[in-house]
Design a protein around this nucleic acid. Sequence first.
DNA 1: ATTAGCACTCTTTGTTAATGAGTGCTAACA
DNA 2: TGTTAGCACTCATTAACAAAGAGTGCTAAT
Lengths: 344, 344
Amino acid sequence: MLTNRQLQILQVIVDDFVTSAQPVGSRQISKKDWITSSPATIRNEMADLEELGFIEKTHTSSGRVPSEKGYRFYVDHLLRPISMSTQEIGLFQSIFKNQIVEMEQVIRESANILSDLTSYTTILLGPNVSKHRVKRFQIVPLSEQTAVAIIVTDNGHVENRTITLPQGFFPSDIEKTVNILNERLVGISLLELQSRLELETFYVLRQHVNTADSFIQSLRNVATFQNEGKIYFGGKTNMLNQPEFHDLNKVRALMEMMEKESQVISLFHPEDTGIHIRIGSENNHLVMDDLSVITASYSIGNDQEGSIAIIGPKRMDYQRVVSLLDVMRSGLSSALSNKVNDGL
Amino acid sequence: MLTNRQLQILQVIVDDFVTSAQPVGSRQISKKDWITSSPATIRNEMADLEELGFIEKTHTSSGRVPSEKGYRFYVDHLLRPISMSTQEIGLFQSIFKNQIVEMEQVIRESANILSDLTSYTTILLGPNVSKHRVKRFQIVPLSEQTAVAIIVTDNGHVENRTITLPQGFFPSDIEKTVNILNERLVGISLLELQSRLELETFYVLRQHVNTADSFIQSLRNVATFQNEGKIYFGGKTNMLNQPEFHDLNKVRALMEMMEKESQVISLFHPEDTGIHIRIGSENNHLVMDDLSVITASYSIGNDQEGSIAIIGPKRMDYQRVVSLLDVMRSGLSSALSNKVNDGL
DNA sequence: ATTAGCACTCTTTGTTAATGAGTGCTAACA
DNA sequence: TGTTAGCACTCATTAACAAAGAGTGCTAAT
């Protein structure tokens, strides 16, 4: 177990390094007025902390830098949530107050505000579409051969696909199809849509509609959705201001990573419910070895979920980000839930 | 007027500098086997070319680099379109052949292929929505107070907005409204929609529908569109491989620029019809001083237009890019026009 | 008109030395 | 026994300097 003094020293090392990005030495630590020991004593303690793996040297005679284990210990035991300035709280409320705007707009704004406030990069995962429920089907013919199929969900999301109509498919057939689909499928979630179609609806369709068979493949396409929510970014370029990104190769690697949807999504973990911190290599991604990700989930109504992630250097201001994220998460949840409730 | 030899030398300087990114010296030029003069002669010619403003030195005793005026002369007089390898042509066809995919998919693919082939950044401006014509209106109620308004256009594009319903607005009112809208507005372009609503439709609506007034503002919102097409990027990070972007500040400036929709759009010029080249400061944008933009427009059917831009360093392979862009432009035009025709 | 020759300029690279921040260890101290 | 002052040592950073190399402009010869 760490002594009280060791805890203090570790805390100073992390805090100082977070703000300065420079290795911190014994003299610097002893200058803090709540630290009473002399540099020499502190050096001894630091040697111990290093042996325990909490801090590291960048070279033989340099000051110390927190190790990954050190950060982990810090966030697990030394982190005290701080309260935000009223100015910041005001900023948040300004997004949520505005009732008129669309859900998408609120999410976009949130991402931007978070990245402005932290000067890190924000990734906001929109609510997973597959939990929305079908409110209405619609097929609008464009020509003899093509039409647009539209699904409206209970919270106002609209999905649409262009489909090909089989030859000899008449307006009356379209009408019949739409009726069947609406009768059978309204109220079920997009997630179940695919299987419901296969198991039941197609069968009915074949019975009532001419040339249904060649049409069914089109409908299959309609029912295929991305199974993750839409991705919104805020402050993509903020990271370039961080000193750890003076290295062009790192910049490139990170930028390329952010372009790839699947890799971005892999930063989120569906089992994370509250606020989670992943430090450096804990992200299991080479590019992220020098970065930390803090994720939080928000919920809309009862089950629809979205996530927020803030990506910053390992040397990131964990206290501040966690606090901000907590406010944002509850703000988003209640704002968006209200929107849904208004619509019930 | 430039002598034949000066033209040759200018051409070599541009061509060599484009591939090597290094200032080119007299010795290097004289080594080309179609250049017969000695380095000394070439030095004299280069002094003249410099006096005329076509080339520059990076320092007193360095080789020469094309000036902006030099590039301009090069693209205006020295550029010969080159034919593409069959391999490349095959790549293009592979996108367009696939008939099933959606228009959006084709555009996305095109942007990626172009940036892969050039290793520059591609920006593709989708067709301007405002020229689409209304095919069908639809209003789907979500609750007592909210509904989704949907506009389907003649080529399958779907626009939707969440709207608020006035109190005491019944399903029958919705039906009436939708009927009126469809009667009056089908066939007109989204561009005209706004004015048509104001001048004529709202009047009719007030006569037939209860509490239409408070509903009209919602409809106004529905009829407001972005007046430019959607933006697609390809190879956003390619630029980081260019040696001119070893400077972090330039990287940041460019990335920030690409995040701002309005600035991206300002790279395109609506009056440009064919292929246009803008070199460095010709773009009237500080960030773009070291970059060139080549734009091309493609058309869908008769009037709907979109644009392609390729952004590269001033030292970019103009010949190759122009050729590629020309193929892509006609390929896109015919592929997308076919899609529309299939739908008529 | 062309070119060989040469002095000169400027960048790039490597070497060396000085500076300074910080450590680890030893011995003195409370 | 825990703390601290003192000191030798390490390593990064910076500056100054020299050598090499690429390229130019000019002059004089062809």
